[in-house]
Amino acid sequence: MIPTSEPTARLRPGEGAIARLACLVLQPVLTRVVRRVAARHPSLFARLGPHQATDFLIDPVELPFALHLRPDPQALVFRAVPRDTAPQVGATIRGRFLLLLELIDAEQDGDAAFFSRDLEISGDTEAVVRLRNALDDMDGSLAEEASAMFGTPGRAVLARLRRAYPDATKPREYA
């Protein structure tokens, strides 16, 4: 079972301030990444269909903040939000950070992660299924693509993240 990340209840003193600071620092990066991805993968939006306007909360349980995504090509939203101020959303996807990253990159199977209870979804299931299928139809690695946007420092951050999560980075090679 993945650990809970219910808003506010588990905040320790100072964590709220750290989350807000992290969100502020991250925001320019997230904005740049999502715009690049949208520009390079326009077919993603067709698979989302009516759920382009749905608000998603992507909740990496061990990080001090969550990510709010609205994949509307006309008004993209991708921002880090402290959990205690997270907006009301249509669907929530919750799991360990690197699992979520690997799901986006099709390195892990979403159904398998759901069966094992490492991935939790709530809210509008159709929206989540559409988002999953849209992301799975993209070629290449979004994580690599995003990190490459920031050159050597970006790649170093990604490598460090993967080292920090040895279990999740273990390749799921079944063959």
Binding site: L103, A106, E107, Q108, D109, G110, D111, A112, R132, D136, R172, E173, Y174, A175
Partner: peptide, 12 residues
């Protein structure tokens, strides 16, 4: 299922 599933099962 995902590409990850397809890759793993088909290879196997």
């Amino acid at each position: 299922r995902s590409k990850s599933y397809v890759r793993g099962v088909v290879r196997a």
